[in-house]
Design a binder for these strands. Structure first.
Lengths: 218, 218, 218, 218
DNA sequence: AATGAATGAGATTTCATTCAT
DNA sequence: AATGAATGAAATCTCATTCAT
């Protein structure tokens, strides 16, 4: 808030944010390790190498930790997806492809944490739930914009671009949700390529099909 | 099973299956009501208007109840989807459409129960989990067959029909998973129409596009 | 009570006693089978092939069943031990031996039921407990009398005949209590012989040792 | 274990072992108080003046508590019996006497806890049961050795020394098992004297009877 | 006389949260 | 700032007992 900070306060805040990170990482690690989303505060403390009590200094409750883990993943989207889009250059179709790939890769790297959103109902309160939903929707925005650009440039056919964007998010999540099924035949790269081809085939305007031939064959 | 049943035994069995149904319905109702997939045995007993102990006469454990609720939904797929396909006539593309519609409608009628599959990891044991996965995969089969027929007849382009089938299942589930999002702009019929159009646009062979114009405009 | 009974009443009583026997046998069977003394009323009903409700027509409570099973074993002592003594002829030392053998054999035939006495504390009320203790003490009486006779005839040395009698009862019980230990080296016949030899060696008057040589070498 | 301990860790361990002792004592106290070997976790918590949850910090399960109580008694044997033997000097017969006395006195001091072994079947798992049996058998060893020494020196007659040792253990347990009977006529000292006299009369070699006259008259 | 469905209290166990140190 | 012992409510499951049929 204030631009000039008491150095002690700054140090404290730095330590605090470091602690938060340490705890969040431990939580993510624990989830990937146990494969279960049922993580007790005691187990989290043990994994993070701190005491239970300390967790409550940084997070008000278990729900807060859960919320933070989820937010953490969502934040990763906010970082990675725009970066991937920027890297993809000006072509909106390739930007869509890059965005979807980035989504999938983030999810692949935090599979169990990503699934946490699908359990919120129980643990989290209405307010937190609402917050997550807003963040998730915001997360689709770069994708939606790339799609809109493609439509504006005539490279994509104009049809339900909102729905399409959300479908792509869902298919990215599906890599975590139905990993047990997809992993039988695909690895993450194959998955991205196949799903992208499938989705784009219905979207790319006929006169541009040749140009995106590399994307359209899964 | 046997042709001649002791009437008492028959009556008892009828009562027993009625009880199971009552409990399963209560479980489903409770989920829809609380919006939560976490149902305690106490709460279930209260909702069903019976005692805790009685549940254990019909289901060996909480896992059994959960498994039964899930199986119940999956069984509904097994009934409704083939029926819808049969009603749709011989055209494989229209059969795909009918199958997807049936999926979505079953899920719409049991939204929270349908989500139970996405929590299995915690509650259910490995065996039960495996069982559910098998059932789910089996559930996609009619859809996969209709797609294969469409490809064989040249009405659909041959591309990853397995993946397509599973994607359609996922999009049906998405109606429950992301209901809070989709319901802002779509009702169940609109959702089915839009998703179907989107998926089919990438699948229908060019020379048949005109024939399925009604399906292709979401 | 009344000497002349209504035939219906007599028939009913006969049926009732038959039922009791059926239930008691089932209880004993169940205990030997599961090896555990924790027998639920449901399990007992199943084993006996009757309904739970019916047990309560013949026994007021679970404690009553337990008490009856215990009494049943004790009654068997009351029958078998005097019979064995009678068969053993006039010699009091041999009568002692016969009594101990009978004790051990009854216990061997109902090992787990015999152990029930050692659990009474929990389940049974004070009154029932008292009743069992009295019966158990009464059960030692034939043995005590045979010992007393032996002392009176000068064949046994006079020393703590009460304690000796109870010790013999205990050693018989020990066959059930510590069966896991004794069965490593002895069968029931060997056990009886060895224990008897050990006990009698301290009891038989020196001038009669030769006469009972067969009993004194375990 | 390690020579230099972190004082905090050492203090914590001390506190922890103090808690264990407190809980074990409470368990023993509860058993003596209620006269019952069945102790619920709630009751144990109440008796110890702690919460239920805390018990689970020190013992993994109810079985663990039970096992610990039993082990506690058995450990007392391991301490007291060899000590008593050592105090008794070189004479093996007097060492046998001292060992038996020590057994009986330990049992007298923890009567109900000592009986716990006779309930193991129900509560404890197979492994724990096995463990207890081994410990019990190990417990007889000092007695067995003293007997063997006596035989080797020709002071005791060679006959079933294994069985004799176990019988003496049983007679010690009998003080708890049949306390209600023996207490009518004997106190613990009288019991020890009488039982010892009885057992030794059959064991002491004729030429040494005079030497042990004090032990042989109960 | 007989059934067995139904009850509900009670048992064990887990775990989010607090608080004295 | 940090600890971790302690709490106690809640969850699952069992089983003696009752009662309508």
């Amino acid at each position: 808030m204030s631009e000039i900070l008491d150095p002690d306060v700054a140090a404290r805040e730095a330590r605090a944010s470091q602690r938060s990170r340490q705890l969040l990482d431990a939580a993510a690690r624990l989830m990937e390790k146990t494969g279960s989303e049922a993580v007790s505060m005691q187990a989290l403390a043990a994994e993070a190498g701190v005491s239970v009590g300390l967790i409550y200094r940084y997070f008000g409750s278990k729900d807060d930790v859960l919320l933070a883990v989820i937010t953490d993943v969502l934040t990763q989207f906010e970082v990675e997806v725009p970066a991937a889009i920027a890297d993809a250059g000006d072509d909106p179709v390739r930007r869509v492809g890059a965005a979807f790939g980035a989504y999938c890769r983030v999810i692949d790297s935090r599979r169990h944490a990503a699934l946490l959103t699908y359990r919120e109902s129980n643990a989290l309160g209405h307010e937190a739930r609402q917050r997550i939903k807003e963040l998730e929707v915001a997360t689709v925005d770069p994708l939606r914009r790339a799609l809109a650009d493609g439509i504006a440039e005539g490279r994509l056919v104009a049809q339900h671009s909102d729905l399409v964007a959300y479908n792509l998010l869902l298919l990215a999540h599906a890599w975590a949700l139905k990993h047990w099924y997809f992993e039988r035949t695909l690895d993450i790269d194959g998955y991205i390529r196949a799903q992208l081809a499938l989705s784009l085939r219905g979207l790319v305007a006929p006169e541009f099909v040749a140009e995106y031939a590399d994307l359209l064959v899964g």
